[in-house]
Design a protein around this nucleic acid. Structure first.
Lengths: 128, 128
DNA sequence: AAAATAATAGTAATGATTACTATTACTGAA
DNA sequence: TTCAGTAATAGTAATCATTACTATTATTTT
């Protein structure tokens, strides 16, 4: 993977912020450095950086648009149902979700979603 | 809310299946009973039924399309990363997510997403 | 039954994302 | 260093799920 000027600046801009921007938000801030960059380049590079494990792609339930996160270490998110803001917070693997409900980052916690992913019996058999 | 023929059949078709269909999948099966129904009607009614708490809307991370679930009681989901299949499974509020990893429904469990939602400090202050 | 209201079918619009294409910028071997 | 090969880009068009719109139809209320 070539670290092009465009790719470098996209990564830098993402790392500068803590607010899990959408592709378009990043496009706006990257344009201040590279006025001729195209939105497609931003999307493509975010995809490539995510595949390389350098950033994370968040497809947050309830939000239509994809969001991106430069923090790749394990952590969780809390989203404000009123304004859509998303904050990081540390995930404690020894806690069950119910035990977090006493105020995360000053939020009033309303609930959580816990979804698992894996390989179903049929696909497990197929690949192996 | 009027329980129109269309709305009734959409609800019935959703209740018949366990595989969390998309709006379009439901549209296909409802059309077998109402050949002239429109996709917009399916979307609108799914929205109305979800608001009434009669069904649940799943916006599963990693899946682009919305999915619908006639089971409104508390439960969780596991998605196959290979084929996209989504299965239900019971959520135990006393377990932390790590403790589920010993095979859910015959799945090979690869991981989980835990996301919280609530009201952020700013919005909490605003509304009250 | 007439008036008021809600829902529908069909179609058009929206908006995020992806695909395409000609051009440009690297890379690495001769 | 040069030049052939390859990757990446800008700009634009296409895709596709969802939502909005509108004239018409169905249901409820008075």
């Amino acid at each position: 993977m070539r670290m092009t000027r465009q790719r470098r600046i996209i990564l830098d801009e993402l790392r500068k912020t803590k607010d899990h921007p959408t592709a378009d938000m990043l496009y706006q801030s990257v344009r201040r450095h590279l006025p001729r960059i195209s939105l497609g380049t931003v999307y493509r590079n975010l995809e490539i950086l995510a595949e390389a494990g350098m950033i994370r792609k968040l497809e947050f339930g309830g939000a239509s648009r994809m969001r991106f996160d430069a923090t790749v270490s394990r952590h969780s998110h809390i989203r404000c149902v009123a304004c859509g803001r998303i904050d990081d917070f540390p995930l404690d693997p020894d806690l069950n979700p119910e035990e977090y409900t006493a105020g995360i980052n000053g939020y009033e916690v309303l609930g959580y979603n816990l979804e698992f992913y894996g390989r179903c019996p049929a696909c497990k058999a197929k690949v192996k």
